[in-house]
Amino acid sequence: MKMAFILFDSMTTLDFTGFYEAVTWMGILKAKETMSWDFCSNKEEITDDRGLTMKIDRVLPDLSAYDLVFIPGGLSTRQLRYDPDFMSWIQTARDVPYKVSVCTGALILGAAGYLHGKKATTNPSAYDLLAPYCEEVIKERYVRDGNVFTGGGVSASIDLGLFVVESLTNEAVARKIQEKMDYPYYTAGLRK
C-alpha cells in the first residue's frame, strides 16, 4: 500500500501527525505488505499554522499512483478549495482507492468532487462549509462512506487513523497499534 500525505502552508500539524502516527504502524508491524508513504505538496517546503517548516519529498506528483491519499485541515483549506492549480493536482487522485481527510481537509475532498452523494464530517466549526459538498454532514469524530473516510476536528485524526487501520486490516491490529501509541480513547470493533 502506497500512501500520499498532502501537506500545505498553514495546515494544522496535529491533523496530519495523529493520522500519520497510527497508519504508519501498519508498515512497522508489517500488517500490510509493501507499505510506503510520501510527503507531497505543491511546493518544496511548507510552513504550518504555527510556524513549523517542513521539507517535502514529492512536489506535485501524479496522485493516481497512490492507494491512499490523506488531506489534513487548517484555516488555509478555505482558500485552497478555490485555487485552480492546487485543486487540479488534487483531482489527479480521482481513481485512488482510499481518500481520507481530517478536519477541514474535507473541504478539499469536497471541492474536488470526492464527497458527492456521500456522508462526511469535518471540524464542527466548518459543518456549514462542508454541507454543499456532500449528501449529509455527520456530527461524529469519524465517518466512513464507501472508501472515503473523514475525521472531525484536529485530535480526531488519531481516532480516524486507528479506524482506517482497523478497516484496512482487522480489530487486533488496531488494538495493537492503539497499545503502542498508549492511546486509550479509541474503541476497536465499535463500527465498520
Rank of each mutant, 00 (worst) to 15 (best):
A93V: 08
S157I: 06
K99R: 15
G73D: 09
V148I: 15
R94P: 00
T47H: 00
Y185A: 07
L107H: 02
L80T: 03
I46T: 08
L52I: 13
M54Q: 13
Y186L: 03
S10Q: 13
F16T: 10
G105R: 05
K139Y: 11
E135M: 11
S155E: 08
A106L: 09
S64T: 08
T104L: 08
P84A: 10
A106P: 05
L162E: 03
A174Y: 02
S76N: 10
R94V: 08
F5A: 00
L52G: 07
K99N: 07
A188Y: 12
C40W: 02
A65P: 01
D62R: 12
R58Y: 07
G110K: 02
E45T: 15
D85M: 12
K118C: 12
A120D: 06
A112D: 09
A120G: 08
T13W: 13
G73T: 11
K99W: 07
K32H: 11
E171Q: 15
F163T: 00
K32A: 14
I46P: 02
S41F: 00
V100H: 03
S157F: 04
R78G: 11
E140Y: 05
L63Y: 04
Y66W: 07
M35A: 12
R144C: 08
V59M: 04
V102Y: 06
T34R: 12
N123R: 07
M87W: 13
D62I: 12
D67S: 14
S64N: 10
E33D: 13
C134T: 12
A174N: 05
N42F: 05
F16S: 01
F149K: 08
M26T: 15
G117E: 04
S167Q: 14
D48V: 01
A126N: 13
R81P: 02
